[in-house]
């Protein structure tokens, strides 16, 4: 029996899921700016609905990013506390990969579909990655890894092609850039902890776990430039 607790707060959505031997329950809300108030009560509610105590769980999975910096830290902070306190391993997964899996399940996309999850990275840029969906129970193939770029650089990576775009980064692309991909996008699309809970047993079995102490956000954007102070005399 594998039991997984899965958490995501990397976008405006906030979701928690529990997978008990393939049976998955999820709590999902879109609650911008309200993640700290929602997340732990949702965890508690879902555990008690499943008649589980936290220490009955085998591992805690979380989306490590990319996403809202604050959202990522809320999730990682809660996961660190839960996992350290209950002595559980953690499993960090790309937000974009979970979006690809959520899209496959919720939009009924066929195996073989190339999918491009995009998130608004602010400063006129997007986080994105390219996945190809495989059989619905398995991990999608990652064709291009998580990265951040201006939309024009994203567009220039592809010949005109039928990619499926999902996620809050869609509005960052202008109409011409959208047309380039030849499909309409799903901007109101969020990652779901359900799919994280679906993926996690495979990662747990293959040893893709970390200690709570090593759980950290993967921001992708690390070179945020702040203006440095100019000094007059060297000290």
């Amino acid at each position: 029996m594998t039991k997984i607790l899965a958490l995501d707060t990397s976008t405006d959505a906030c979701s928690v899921a529990i997978n008990v031997d393939g049976e998955i329950h999820e709590d999902f809300v879109v609650a911008p700016q309200d993640h700290t108030r929602r997340l732990l009560p949702m965890v508690d509610h879902l555990l008690s609905k499943s008649s589980l105590a936290l220490r009955d769980v085998d591992a805690i999975a979380f989306t490590h990013g990319p996403g809202s910096f604050t959202g990522l830290r809320i999730c990682v902070g809660i996961v660190q506390g839960l996992a350290f306190g209950a002595n559980l391993p953690v499993i960090g997964v790309s937000t974009l990969e979970i979006m690809a899996m959520s899209a496959q399940r919720l939009l009924g996309l066929a195996a073989g579909t190339p999918i491009l999850p995009v998130l608004d990275a602010r400063m006129g840029e997007v986080y994105w990655a390219l996945y190809r969906l495989v059989a619905s129970e398995s991990r999608p193939d990652c064709l291009l890894v998580d990265q951040v770029s201006p939309p024009e650089d994203l567009v220039s990576q592809f010949e005109q092609s039928n990619l499926y775009l999902v996620g809050g980064g869609c509005p960052v692309l202008d109409q011409d850039q959208m047309k380039h991909f030849g499909v309409s996008c799903q901007a109101q699309f969020y990652p779901h902890a359900y799919d994280l809970a679906r993926l996690a047993p495979e990662l747990l079995a293959s040893g893709h776990t970390q200690s709570a102490l090593d759980a950290n956000p993967v921001y992708i954007r690390n070179e945020v430039s702040w203006e440095k102070r100019r000094r007059i005399r060297s000290q």
Binding site: L40, I78, Q80, G81, F84, G85
Partner: peptide, 11 residues
Amino acid sequence: SCIGRSLAYAW
């Protein structure tokens, strides 16, 4: 706050 609150919950 997140780490502290969830740690207390786990304990």
